[in-house]
């Protein structure tokens, strides 16, 4: 059974102006489709990465996966329990305590007025448990000192704060951790430390990660399977080798070509054309067709469905 399964997930935000302005200025309701019909599953003890540029809906999917946002359509199933439809409160609570999240900004994700001990213990104490000694143990597990439990967040650097966030996420002994850009605010050398820590913990504790990032190199390093998002849609999915050695979707190909390379000295590339379209008025058919070199009439009329191609999955009419 998959650890987490997401089916036909869709999320629409109402970004209309206030009612009175709409009436006076005769504006229609503005709806932003942040996530549109996304389906994937993450096997237990694996790392699944969602990668995409801004506006691709990757963070929205992450929030729906942990239950911070509710889906407009579709469902999220954790260990066989459907978060959107389950009515049994006990089962629901169990499913929720199995999921934790690590956020992007290590400065905003720790309450500045709380001691580190209270921050780390909160997932346990909030459920009425006793956190005695827990924070100290977890701090050592993430490579900090047990003495740090009495300090406040402002006494730590960005990388150390992210370790504290990881310790908090581990406190309720979750099975799945959703990591929303956990290293994009960190420097390269600190990023390496945090990524290694996350890999160690995954192996030691048998964790499953849903890893959200815009950084292709990080994703290639850490994940077992990668889903590429464009404008709220999943366009391609495959293992790192399948994706990086044999990208099938024209968008994935464009993304890989555009990413800076460490050995690309003086590389002159033909930069990709255009920018990401406005998600309030997405293109018809395939969302990528206005920028796509392969686009045909079918692409502007009909949205491609996910299909198998050489072991990977791709949503493109033309990919071969």
């Amino acid at each position: 059974m998959a650890m987490i399964e997401v089916t036909h997930l869709t999320r629409i935000f109402d970004v209309s102006k206030p009612w009175l302005n709409r009436v006076l200025e005769r504006l229609p309701k503005a709806l932003l489709t942040a996530v549109s019909d996304v389906s994937f599953k993450v096997e237990e003890r694996t790392v699944y990465a969602l990668v995409g540029e801004s506006g691709s809906g990757k963070s929205t999917i992450g929030k729906m996966a942990v239950g911070l946002l509710s889906p407009s359509e579709g469902s999220v199933t954790i260990n066989g329990i459907d978060l959107t439809r389950e009515t049994d409160a006990a089962k629901m609570d169990k499913a929720r305590s199995d999921i934790q999240m690590i956020f992007q900004d290590p400065y905003a994700s720790l309450n500045p007025r709380w001691k580190v001990r209270d921050i780390i213990n909160e997932p346990v104490t909030a459920r009425g448990g006793s956190g005695v000694g827990l924070a100290e143990k977890l701090l050592e597990q993430v490579g900090l000192s047990a003495l740090d439990a009495d300090k406040f967040p402002h006494e730590f650097s960005g990388g150390q704060r992210q370790r504290i966030c990881i310790a908090r996420a581990l406190a309720s002994e979750p099975k799945l951790i959703v990591c929303d850009e956990p290293t994009s605010a960190l420097d390269v050398s600190v990023q390496a430390q945090v990524l290694n820590l996350m890999t160690n913990l995954q192996e030691d504790l048998g964790l499953t990660y849903l890893f959200i990032s815009h950084d292709l190199t990080v994703v290639q390093h850490i994940s077992d399977k990668i889903g590429v998002l464009y404008l709220g849609r999943l366009v391609e999915e495959g293992t790192p080798d399948q994706l990086f050695d044999d990208p099938k979707h024209p968008y994935t190909q464009m993304l890989l070509a555009a990413a800076p390379k460490m050995d690309g000295f003086g590389r002159e590339i033909d930069p990709p054309q255009g920018e990401i379209p406005d998600p309030i008025n997405p293109p018809t058919g395939c969302a990528f067709h206005p920028r796509c070199p392969l686009a045909t009439r079918q692409c502007s009329a009909e949205r491609p469905v996910m299909r198998e191609l050489r072991g990977a999955r791709v949503a493109c009419h033309e990919a071969t």
Partner: peptide
């Protein structure tokens, strides 16, 4: 801010 989201995730009620 994300620390509030983290608290919601943990299952804290609005009052807390």
């Amino acid at each position: 801010k994300e620390y509030v989201q983290a608290a919601r995730l943990i299952g804290r009620g609005s009052g807390a």
